[in-house]
Design a protein around this nucleic acid. Structure first.
Length: 1032
RNA sequence: GGUCCCGUAGCUCAAUUGGCUAGAGCGCCUGCCUUACAAGCAGGAGGUCACAGGUUCGAGCCCUGUCGGGACCACCA
C-alpha cells in the first residue's frame, strides 16, 4: 500500500482491467426475468477505415449509459458490430488494388474482388474493435455482428422476400450515373462536379401539321449536348408562356432522323426566363427530363447510348460512334439543314466519376424500389404518438419531414460487395412459365400465384423489361432454398447481378442482431454456432420450446444514440422495418449528440487532414481522460470545436494545426512538415495527402483540450491516494447522526444532491451537465473543502475512526458515480480500496443509523449505483456552510491583498448576531485549519479595531487587525470600489421593486427573492459605508 | 433553394427553459514546493450576451429583420 504513485498511470490500469472485466463476463447480457432489460444497439461503424473522434464521442455516450444502467440493476446489453458499407468499402479496396497492382475489378472478377474485400473487412473490423475496447467499450462482445454475416443475411433475405410477396418491392427504371470508362454505375456521392469548357448551342426544330408537313414555324431551344437530340421525345414549354401556347399539342420534326415529337407544357421543367423558354426533352439521358417523362409518360423514352459511351441503333447512321464524335456530326448536320442558330462558349459544370475521373453519363437502368407509402406513414405515426421520442426533441422534425415525402426507396446498387438481390429472372415465355409452374405457380393473365406451400418461400411477378415490349418473369426466393435456386438456374433464369443498398441491411440491425427471423432459437454467439444454425433452415415452431428469448427480452431497444446526419438514412428506416418485421418500434428513445468539428469549424474527417485518432489521444492522456473530456462536450445544442495540435515527436511540444497544414501536399517529392519551435526542427506529420517516409519520427495529432479530463482523473487519483494513506487502522462500524460533524453532514447533503442530479442528467442524455456536476462535487467540494476540513480529525486518535468511515463512504459513492465516465481509474481505486476495506459504512434509508457496514461488490463495474436518501439533503445546513466558506474566502483574500505570507497567523474578529456568532465559534478550529486564522472574537458587540482590513457578508462583518501592515489608502480604495459595485446592484434592485407592475405581476417568489437580495445588499452597503467612514 | 443549429470572457463551452450580482475549464496576473495532488493550492483581472427593432413588470433566452459561422436535404437544362 505504500506504493501509490503521485500521478495516475492510465496505461497499466487499462491493460489490467479490461481483460478482467471481459473474463468475468461483466459485459455479457442474458435474458433475466428478475431484471429489466436495457438495450443499446451500436450505430454500426463502416469497415471502410479506422474510427475517428465522432465514433469516440458516440461510443462514450453509449458506454456511459450502459454502465450506468448496469449499475442500476438493469440487464444492460450493448450490442456491437460493423457495417459492410457497400459502396465505400468496395471503392476503397478497388482504389488500393488499382494503385498498388494496377488492376481493376474487371481484371480480377467478382469472386476474387469480394474475397479481397472480406480480407479488408477482417483487418479493419479487428482494428475498430480494438479501438473500441481501448476506450473501454463494455459491449457484449460475444454477440458482435456484421451486416454481411450469416445471421444478418438471413434477416435481409427474409425481409426482401416478405416485402416482395407483399407487393412492396417493385422493379422500376431510374437514371444512374454511368461511368463509361469503368462501365459501371456510380453512386451520387462518388461523383464530383467540375467545370469544363463547353458550348451552348441553339438550334430549332420545324413545327409540322397533322400530316407531318412543315408549317414553316420553328421552335428554338438550347443545349450543351446536341447528340442527345437523337433521343428527344418532346419539346417542352411553360404552360403560361404566351409565346408558345398556340403550339402546345402540335408536333415538331427532328431533322436528324425525321422523327415527330410532341410539344408539351410542363411548368416544372420549362422556365420562361431561361434561354428561349423552350427546352428539348431527352428522358433517357437527363434527370430532369426523366422526371418530366414520369409526369408525361405518353411522350415515351429512347435510350441512345451503349454502355461504353458509343451510340446504339437508335442513332441511325451514327451507331457505334463515340458520343463526342456524334456531337460534332450532329451539329454539322443541323447546320447543313439550316436549323443551327448560334453557339457560345461556356463553362459547364459536369459530373465526373470519382474513380475514373472521366465524365459520367446519365443512363437508364432497371432498379429495385421499396414502396414507401404505408411504411413511411407507420414510421411517422410512431414518432408523432410518442412511441419513439427524440432527445433533443427538435430532431423529430428532420425525421418526419423526410419520411413525409414518401419517396420510394431505391434499394439496388450496381456493386459486387453486398447482399445480392434474391431475384431470378428470364424473358417471359413458355419455358419460363413452365419452370415456375413446376414450383406450384398458376398464371391468371399476368398475375402469378403460388400454392400455399411454395408461397412460403417463392414469389413471382411478370414485369416490363428495359426494351420496349420486353416481358420478364421475376422470381424471388427466400433464404435457405438453394434447391429452388438451382432449378431456376437450370431453367435459364439468372440471378440479378446487383446488390442491396447498405441501408437495407443496417435498417434491420435492431432485430437482425437478436436473431430475427429465427423465433425458435437464441441467436448464435460465435462463428461455430453461426455455422451450425445456418446450415439448416430454422426449425418449425413447435410451441413447446422457449423460442428466441434473446429477441423477446431485448427487443425493443431502450435508446439509440447517434449523430444527426443519419436520422433519415438510418434511424427512419430502422423504425420502418422494425414496425414492418417486428410490429414494434426498434427503440423508445433516440438521442442525437453533437458533431465534433476542428478548430476552424470544419467537420472532422480523414480526408480533410483533421481526423484525430482516438487511440493517439488515449495513449497520451488515458482512456478515462478522453472519455471524461468527450462527455463534457456532449450537450444539447452546440457542435463542438476541437482545436488540434501536432505533437513534436521529440519533445512533445504542441504545435497548433493550421489550414495550411491540412491542405499541404508534397511539393516535387518533398513532403510537408511541421516546425517545432522548441527543438528547432521539422517533422513529417500524419496527412491524408501523403504517407510519411518510413522510419522517420512523425508528429501525431492530439488536442490539449483533453488535459481537462486528464487533470480531473489525476485529482480523483490523489484524493483517493490521500484517503488510502489515511485509512491505516481502518475499522468497520456504523456511523450515527450524532457521530457526524458539520462537514460530514454537509458533504453527505451535497452527495445526495449530486447523485440525484446524475440520474436526472443521464436520464435526459445531458452528458455535459452530468460531467460538470460530478466534477464540481469532486474537485470543489470533496477535495477543496471536505478533505481539508477532516485532516485534523484524521490526526486525532479519538475522532479518526468516524472520520475514516465517512471519508471512505463518500469516496465509495464518488467512485461509483464516476465509474460510467472513467471506468478504468474507478476500477483500480475500487480494487485498491477493497483490499483495505471490503466492508464499508454505506448509506441506508434509515433516520437513526445513517451509515451501516456493508460488504461491497467484487468489481466496481457491477457495484450498485448509489442511492443516497433524499432526507440527507439539508438546505439550511448548506446555507450555513456557505457562510463559513465565504468567511474563509474573505480572510484569504485579505491575506493575499496584504501579501501576508501563508505561514503567518492572523486574527479575525466577526461582528454578527448571537446565532451566527455561535455557529462561527463552533467551527473556529477550521479558521485555523483552512486559513491559519485565529477567530479571536465573534458577537454582536464586536467593534472594528483601528488598522484593520474589513469585509462584509451581509449578515456578518469581519475585521482582520493588521496594525502596521495596513495601508490606509489602499484599504480605502478597495472599500470604495466595493461600495460602487454594491451601490450599482442596490440601485438595480430598488428600481425593480419601485416598479408597481413588477411587484403586482411577477410571481411572488421572484419578488420575495429580489427583496431578500436587496436587504442583504443594503446590509453590506451599510457595513462598507461604516468601514469607509471609519477609515477617513 | 428548403430545414435545422450556433454567435456569451483571449480560446472552448454553461446558464435549471423568461426571474437572485451571467458561470466554468484553459490561458493571463499575484503569491505559495502548506504532509493527496505544481497535471497542484490560495487570491485576482477579464463580458455593450453578434447587430437593429419588437413583445413583456422583466430578455442572453421569445418574435421580426440584418450580418457571420456550421450541418442536413433538395437542386444545379
Amino acid at each position: 500500500m505504500s506504493e501509490i504513485p503521485k500521478h495516475y498511470e492510465p496505461g497499466t490500469t487499462q491493460q489490467q482491467w479490461f481483460p478482467f472485466w471481459e473474463e468475468h463476463g461483466y459485459f455479457n447480457a442474458e435474458p433475466n426475468p428478475d431484471r429489466q432489460p436495457h438495450t443499446i444497439m451500436i450505430p454500426l461503424p463502416n469497415v471502410t477505415g479506422a474510427l475517428h473522434m465522432g465514433h469516440a464521442l458516440n461510443g462514450t455516450c453509449q458506454d456511459l449509459i450502459t454502465r450506468w444502467r448496469r449499475m442500476q440493476g438493469y440487464e444492460a446489453l450493448w450490442m456491437p458490430g460493423t457495417d459492410h458499407a457497400g459502396i465505400a468499402t468496395q471503392a476503397v479496396v478497388e482504389r488500393r488494388m488499382l494503385e498498388e497492382e494496377g488492376l481493376t475489378r474487371h481484371d480480377v472478377g467478382r469472386e476474387a474482388l469480394v474475397n479481397r474485400i472480406w480480407k479488408w473487412k477482417d483487418a479493419y473490423e479487428k482494428r475498430i474493435v480494438s479501438q473500441q475496447k481501448s476506450l473501454g467499450a463494455s459491449c457484449d462482445w460475444r454477440r458482435i455482428r456484421f451486416t454481411l454475416d450469416e445471421v444478418c443475411a438471413r434477416a435481409v433475405r427474409k425481409t426482401f422476400f416478405k416485402m416482395f410477396s407483399d407487393g412492396l418491392i417493385y422493379r422500376g427504371k431510374r437514371l444512374v450515373n454511368w461511368d463509361v470508362h469503368l462501365q459501371t454505375a456510380v453512386a451520387d456521392d462518388e461523383v464530383f462536379d467540375e467545370e469544363v469548357d463547353g458550348h451552348f448551342w441553339t438550334f430549332n426544330y420545324p413545327v409540322v401539321d397533322d400530316d407531318g408537313n412543315e408549317t414553316g414555324e420553328r421552335i428554338s431551344f438550347s443545349t450543351t449536348r446536341p447528340e442527345t437530340m437523337l433521343g428527344d421525345t418532346a419539346v417542352c414549354v411553360h404552360p403560361t408562356d404566351e409565346r408558345y401556347t398556340h403550339l402546345v399539342g402540335r408536333k415538331v420534326k427532328i431533322p436528324l432522323n425525321d422523327r415527330l415529337i410532341p410539344i408539351i407544357a410542363d411548368g416544372l421543367l420549362a422556365d420562361k426566363e431561361l434561354g428561349t423558354g423552350a427546352v428539348k426533352v431527352t428522358p433517357a439521358h437527363d434527370p430532369n427530363d426523366y422526371a418530366c417523362y414520369q409526369r408525361n409518360p405518353e411522350i415515351g423514352i429512347i435510350n441512345i447510348l451503349n454502355p461504353d459511351g458509343t451510340l446504339n441503333e437508335n442513332a441511325g447512321p451514327w451507331e457505334g460512334q463515340d458520343r463526342y464524335k456524334v456531337r460534332e456530326r450532329v451539329v454539322e448536320r443541323m447546320a447543313e439543314e439550316g436549323h443551327f442558330e448560334g453557339v457560345e462558349d461556356r463553362k459547364i459544370p459536369i459530373k465526373h466519376s470519382d474513380r475514373s475521373k472521366t465524365i459520367v453519363e446519365p443512363y437508364l437502368s432497371d432498379q429495385w424500389f421499396v414502396k414507401m407509402d404505408d411504411l413511411a406513414q407507420a414510421a411517422i405515426d410512431a414518432v408523432e404518438d410518442g412511441r419513439v421520442r427524440f432527445f433533443p426533441s427538435r430532431y423529430a422534425k428532420t425525421y418526419i419531414d423526410w419520411l413525409a415525402e414518401k419517396r420510394d426507396w431505391c434499394i439496388s446498387r450496381q456493386l459486387w460487395w453486398g447482399h445480392r438481390i434474391p431475384i431470378w429472372s428470364r424473358p417471359f415465355d413458355d419455358e419460363a412459365r413452365a419452370a415456375v409452374q413446376k414450383l406450384g405457380a398458376t398464371f391468371n393473365g399476368e398475375d402469378v400465384t403460388l400454392d400455399g406451400e411454395h408461397a412460403a418461400y417463392v414469389s413471382a411477378v411478370v414485369a416490363d423489361g428495359i426494351q420496349p415490349g420486353e416481358r420478364l418473369l421475376l422470381v424471388c426466393v427466400d433464404d435457405g432454398h438453394e434447391a429452388i435456386e438451382e432449378q431456376l438456374n437450370a431453367a435459364g433464369f439468372e440471378q440479378d447481378p446487383d446488390v442491396l443498398d447498405t441501408w437495407f441491411s443496417s435498417a434491420l440491425w435492431p432485430h437482425a442482431t437478436l436473431g430475427w427471423p429465427d423465433t425458435e432459437r437464441n441467436p448464435p454467439l460465435n462463428e461455430e454456432e453461426v455455422a451450425k444454425q445456418t446450415a439448416a433452415p430454422a426449425p418449425k415452431p413447435t410451441g413447446d420450446g422457449k423460442g428466441n428469448e434473446v429477441l423477446d427480452y431485448f427487443y425493443p431497444g431502450s435508446v439509440l444514440i447517434t449523430s444527426r446526419d443519419i436520422i433519415t438514412l438510418w434511424v427512419a428506416r430502422m423504425v420502418l422495418t422494425g414496425l414492418y418485421n417486428m410490429g414494434d418500434v426498434p427503440f423508445r428513445h433516440v438521442h442525437v449528440h453533437p458533431k465534433i468539428l476542428d478548430g476552424f469549424g470544419q467537420t472532422m474527417s480523414k480526408s480533410k487532414g483533421n481526423g484525430v485518432d482516438p487511440v493517439d489521444l488515449i495513449e497520451k492522456y488515458g482512456a478515462d481522460a478522453v472519455r471524461f473530456t468527450i462527455a463534457s462536450f456532449a450537450g444539447e445544442t452546440q457542435d463542438v470545436r476541437l482545436p488540434i495540435s501536432y505533437e513534436c515527436p521529440k519533445c512533445e511540444t504542441l504545435i497548433p494545426q493550421t489550414i495550411a497544414h491540412q491542405n499541404a501536399k508534397p511539393d516535387e517529392g518533398t513532403k510537408p512538415t511541421v516546425h517545432c519551435p522548441k527543438c528547432k526542427a521539422d517533422y513529417q506529420y500524419t496527412s491524408p495527402n501523403y504517407d510519411p517516409d518510413p522510419d522517420v519520427p512523425v508528429a501525431r495529432m492530439v488536442s490539449e483540450r483533453f488535459e481537462y479530463g486528464r487533470n480531473f482523473c489525476n485529482k480523483l487519483w490523489n484524493a483517493a491516494r490521500f484517503a488510502m494513506l489515511n485509512l491505516e487502522g481502518y475499522t468497520e462500524g456504523p456511523v450515527t447522526q450524532d457521530d457526524l460533524q458539520l462537514e460530514d453532514r454537509w458533504i453527505l447533503s451535497r452527495l445526495s444532491t449530486v447523485t440525484a442530479q446524475m440520474d436526472e442528467f443521464l436520464g435526459r442524455y445531458q452528458f455535459d451537465a452530468a460531467t460538470r456536476a460530478i466534477r464540481e462535487f469532486t474537485w470543489n467540494e470533496f477535495c477543496d473543502w471536505y478533505l481539508e476540513m477532516i485532516k485534523p480529525r484524521l490526526r486525532d486518535e479519538a475522532q479518526r475512526p468516524v472520520a475514516q468511515r465517512v471519508l471512505l463512504s463518500v469516496l465509495d459513492s464518488l467512485v461509483r458515480l464516476l465509474q460510467p465516465f472513467a471506468p478504468f481509474i474507478c476500477e483500480e481505486l475500487w480494487q485498491r480500496l477493497r483490499e483495505i476495506a471490503p466492508v464499508r459504512s454505506l448509506p441506508v434509508d434509515d433516520a437513526t443509523n445513517v451509515l451501516m457496514p456493508t460488504e461491497v461488490a467484487e468489481a466496481c463495474i457491477v457495484a450498485s449505483w448509489p442511492q443516497i436518501p433524499a432526507a440527507w439533503r439539508d438546505e439550511s445546513l448548506e446555507k450555513r456552510f456557505a457562510r463559513l466558506q465565504e468567511t474563509i474566502a474573505a480572510v484569504r483574500n485579505v491575506r493575499a491583498i496584504y501579501q501576508i505570507p501563508p505561514g503567518t497567523p492572523i486574527k479575525l474578529l466577526m461582528r454578527a448576531t448571537p446565532e451566527v456568532a455561535d455557529e462561527l465559534q463552533n467551527v473556529s478550529q477550521q479558521f485555523e485549519n483552512l486559513a491559519k486564522t485565529v477567530l479571536e472574537a465573534a458577537g454582536a458587540d464586536v467593534v472594528r479595531p483601528s488598522g484593520a482590513a474589513s469585509f462584509s457578508l451581509g449578515d456578518a462583518d469581519g475585521y482582520v487587525p493588521l496594525e502596521g501592515l495596513i495601508d490606509r489608502k489602499k484599504e480605502l480604495e478597495r472599500q470604495q470600489k466595493e461600495l460602487e459595485t454594491l451601490r450599482k446592484h442596490v440601485a438595480g434592485h430598488e428600481k425593480k421593486l419601485a416598479n408597481e407592475n413588477f411587484v403586482s405581476r411577477a410571481p411572488e417568489h421572484v419578488v420575495a427573492n429580489v427583496r431578500e437580495t436587496l436587504e442583504n445588499l443594503r446590509k453590506q452597503l451599510a457595513s462598507v459605508e461604516a468601514i469607509i467612514a471609519d477609515l477617513q
